[in-house]
């Protein structure tokens, strides 16, 4: 009987260990989150988009969003952004990828931002040339959509993999402000088909949280 008890307990422990490992594998794949910095007139979110994630990333060939600090350094690979409810969110996106163009020119214009505008390299605009778009930052539930212009195809000092140095590599800088509503979880995503190599460019990073989409966690 003692032998059977030991065997049964051992088997039970083995199963529990297997279950723990199974759950752990899932949990360790969950993208983390980044909290927007608080300023006197709202929250400040600094982001970057790159043509390829870091070389040590599980998908080093995928385009991706990153969180940075105000200087464009301190790169963090998270796409869940924590922002306060009923407040202004100022967003700065440094864009290091080249243009891929839009299939739907309508989304080359900004919507849902304060004033209906954004700035591209310091210049206030309402839309960009659809052929120059590289990515889009859109939060459909809030009606926010802002196009991000790409760097020229022949840029000499184009960045390869993240992290990119804003002082030495080519990029465009887009800023805009939008207002959050009630607390909740809001999906954001890029609408430019940029999953190169996948069918219709919609696979891979386009359908994986942590790359070209994520969540806005309004708290």
């Amino acid at each position: 009987m003692a032998r059977r008890t030991v065997l049964t307990l051992s088997a039970t422990l083995l199963v529990i260990a297997a279950i723990a490992a199974y759950v752990f594998l899932y949990l360790t794949n969950v993208p983390g989150s980044a909290t927007a910095a608080q300023t006197a007139n709202g929250a400040q979110l600094n982001l970057a988009t790159v043509p390829a994630a870091a070389t040590n990333d599980p998908h080093p060939t995928w385009v991706s969003y990153y969180v940075t600090n105000g200087q464009g350094t301190g790169w963090q690979h998270d796409t869940t952004f924590v922002v306060p409810a009923h407040s202004l969110v100022h967003v700065t996106i440094r864009q290091y990828d080249s243009s891929s163009g839009l299939r739907n020119p309508f989304i080359s214009q900004a919507t849902g931002t304060v004033g209906g505008t954004f700035t591209l390299d310091g210049k206030t605009m309402q839309a960009i040339n659809p052929d120059l778009a590289s990515h889009v930052f859109a939060i459909p539930q809030l009606g926010v959509s802002v196009p991000l212009a790409g760097i020229p195809d022949n840029a000499k000092n184009a960045c390869g993999n993240a992290p990119c140095d804003p002082s030495t590599t080519a990029h465009t800088t887009t800023t805009f402000t939008f207002r959050t509503g009630a607390k909740g979880l809001y999906r954001w995503q890029c609408f430019v088909p940029c999953g190169a190599g996948y069918v219709l460019d919609f696979g891979g990073p386009m359908q994986t949280v942590g790359y070209m989409d994520g969540f806005l966690k309004v708290v």
């Binding site: 279950i19 199974y22 899932y26 794949n29 969950v30 979880l185 949280v209 942590g210 966690k217």
Partner: peptide, 29 residues
């Protein structure tokens, strides 16, 4: 194993927002 996945699904759905798994992990589960 399939039943364990069901438990994980129901754990995630304890809250109306994501709180344990990300969307991708949830869909895989």
């Amino acid at each position: 194993v399939g039943g364990l996945n069901a438990m994980l699904i129901r754990t995630e759905l304890l809250s109306p927002t994501t709180h344990v798994f990300g969307a991708n992990q949830y869909l895989t589960i």
